[in-house]
């Protein structure tokens, strides 16, 4: 019964995600009929121009949104499971902001030092973002590892590191020659505007691979979700399993940030919403991925297509996600009073 419910919700979410994707591709400067989008994706474009628009401009952007959503959604589900804390998600914990700070640090560095190999700015960006994200994640988890990860201390320390990384990012944006306001916005708020196939690079493969890995680690996740004494009693190497799952989550969050910048609240909301929809005890990975993808697609539709100016998707995820955080916090504290 429970499995069946979970299966049906997954199917429904997949259908919603597909519809959102097609709407996301079809809405734009010149609207394309959803039917045409569908046939083009199947390789039978009605005309040359539609094919070019979709394959070269619309699709990379939509894929960027989907991948960022999947990456953040799964990363959120994994960290929430390990920390047994619905508020512990990579965006609250500063991992996405750390990755953004790393990327911007590289940009500031390469714009000031001349004579560097050209490849550095292309291949260096994911590496710098990874270093920044790992550094932030390492700092947060190392600072609270001696106590329980469930405590609100994890969330508070994460918020502090997150604020620090955001401040460092704005500092380095003034150091480097980021004359391009769009680029600055990407790294401050998160956006998929103007994403191209070159920008995506190998990131979609990383995200799908890591998400799959996270989904396969079902046993580890279920044991980690028990309280630490029970998990240890079952003979689990707790620290090792925690590190592995958190590592996968961190890589997912960083890859998503490389694609779309530090989108706020996607990881936080997706994991939790997926858990409520599927009615499971721990956030299910597949559902979280789908909810994340839907969230980013819709947020980008609202931000980029509602107004005359194309807004970054991060603005919409912040405005939608913030009330959700309030709801989560109040819900949590009410539960605690009852207990």
């Amino acid at each position: 019964m429970k499995r069946r419910h979970s299966f049906i919700t997954a199917l429904t979410l997949a259908a919603v995600a597909l519809v959102s994707l097609i709407v996301h591709i079809s809405v734009g400067g010149t609207p394309i009929a959803p039917g045409d989008v569908f046939t083009t994706l199947l390789g039978q474009a009605p005309d040359q121009r539609t094919a070019l628009t979709i394959w070269e401009f619309r699709l990379p952007r939509s894929i960027a949104a989907v991948c960022a959503g999947i990456g953040l959604g799964v990363a959120g589900a994994l960290t929430q499971t390990v920390a047994r804390n619905p508020l512990a998600s990579p965006d609250i914990l500063g991992i996405t902001n750390g990755a953004a700070a790393g990327a911007v640090a590289l940009m500031a560095f390469t714009s000031q030092v001349s004579g560097l190999p050209a490849g550095l700015s292309v291949y260096g960006l994911p590496i710098a973002a990874t270093l920044g994200g790992l550094l932030a994640a390492g700092a947060v988890f190392a600072l609270v590892w001696h106590t329980s990860l469930e405590s609100s201390r994890l969330v508070l320390v994460g918020m502090g590191i997150s604020g620090l990384c955001a401040a460092l990012t704005s500092w380095m944006l003034t150091l480097g020659e980021v004359t391009n306001a769009q680029q600055a916005l990407t790294w401050m708020a998160g956006t998929v505007n103007g994403a191209s196939w070159e920008d995506l690079g190998g990131m979609p493969i990383v995200i799908l691979g890591m998400a799959l890995l996270g989904g396969l680690m079902r046993n580890q996740r279920e044991v980690l979700a028990l309280d630490s004494d029970t998990a240890r009693g079952l003979g689990v190497h707790l620290s090792r399993d925690r590190l592995i799952v958190l590592g996968v989550a961190t890589i997912l969050a960083i890859a998503a940030t490389v694609i779309a910048g530090p989108l706020a609240f996607v990881a936080l909301a997706s994991g939790h919403a997926a858990r409520m929809l599927a009615r499971t005890t721990i956030p299910p990975v597949l559902h979280s991925a789908l909810v994340g993808a839907i969230f980013v697609l819709l947020a980008d539709l609202i931000a980029a297509r509602t107004f005359s100016v194309v807004l970054p998707a991060g603005v919409a995820t912040a405005v939608i996600g913030a009330p959700y955080l309030i709801y989560l916090v109040l819900n949590r504290s009410r539960v605690r009073v009852k207990a």
């Binding site: 508070l156 706020a264 100016v309 603005v315 913030a322 009330p323 955080l325 916090v329 109040l330």
Partner: peptide, 25 residues
């Protein structure tokens, strides 16, 4: 202390998001 800070963080994010939107528009 934690509830207050988290609600504060959410209100900060919400207001900052709307401010960015309005300024960009």
């Amino acid at each position: 202390p934690v509830t207050l800070i988290l609600v504060g963080a959410a209100v900060t994010a919400l207001c900052a998001g709307v401010v960015s939107t309005l300024v960009l528009l």
